[in-house]
Design a protein around this nucleic acid. Structure first.
Length: 209
DNA sequence: ACATTAAGTGATT
DNA sequence: AATCACTTAATGT
């Protein structure tokens, strides 16, 4: 696990000195599949780096409406919790482990200093923002310009990409929640996709063809 | 066998 | 595309 942290960081161009520090002050956190990692309303005191597994970042409003923003995979860090860290604000999103995951948690009080001291760290943070930002743009595009059926198909393909599996183990209800629409609508659209031969349905499971 | 939860469908707005 | 009301199918106890 220390190894994967090391290779992730050096991949990102971070010098050995800082890698050493990150290893010293951080600690590992494992999450079971389905576990909530960041809940809305909490204040995060740590910046997480994903070492293994898959996390989903979901935006939530006060009526518990939800919308999936993006997935986080190995090597990535959560830009949103970072922003919260630095600003000391409350989170207004939730992060869930979609899979057995391992995170490396770094106490936030180190971040400021590192950003000042290490150009490579600054670059790492900024580029992870960049990546997140691009993903958000894509999500916005999809919400604004795609018909719901295309959005749904894209949702499934993204999930496939993220999990590297042709199986999506979600109920219609869960999908509807993440896309902020109703279960009935999802059922109808999935049925259509099935008729078009793009997917195959089973209970609590969808196979992408 | 029965209850519970998931999925399918027509009608209406 | 959302909601209602209802049916049917799958699964757990």
């Amino acid at each position: 696990m220390q190894e994967s942290l090391k290779s992730i960081l050096s991949e990102a161009g971070i010098e050995d000195e800082l890698i050493q520090e990150i290893q010293n002050v951080g600690f590992p956190k494992t999450a079971r599949s389905g576990e909530l990692i960041i809940t809305p309303g909490s204040t995060s005191m740590h910046m997480p780096i994903v070492l293994e597994g898959l996390l989903s970042v979901v935006r939530q409003d006060e009526d518990a409406n939800e919308i999936l923003l993006y997935y986080l995979e190995g090597g990535e860090t959560c830009a949103m919790s970072l922003a919260c860290c630095i600003e000391g604000k409350r989170n207004d999103f939730k992060v869930t482990a979609e899979d057995e995951s391992v995170l490396w948690m770094i106490p936030m009080n180190y971040l400021d200093g590192w950003i000042q001291k290490y150009k490579s760290f600054r670059k790492y943070i900024f580029s992870s923002y960049q990546v997140r930002f691009d993903e958000l743009l894509e999500t916005i595009d999809s919400i604004t310009f795609l018909k719901l059926q295309d959005r749904l198909y894209k949702f499934l393909l993204d999930k496939k990409e993220a999990t590297r599996s042709y199986e999506v183990n979600m109920s219609h209800q869960e999908i509807a929640n993440q896309m902020n629409t109703s279960r009935v609508v999802i059922s109808r659209l999935l049925k259509q996709l099935e008729r078009e031969g793009k997917i195959e349905q089973h209970r609590n499971r969808i196979e992408i063809l």
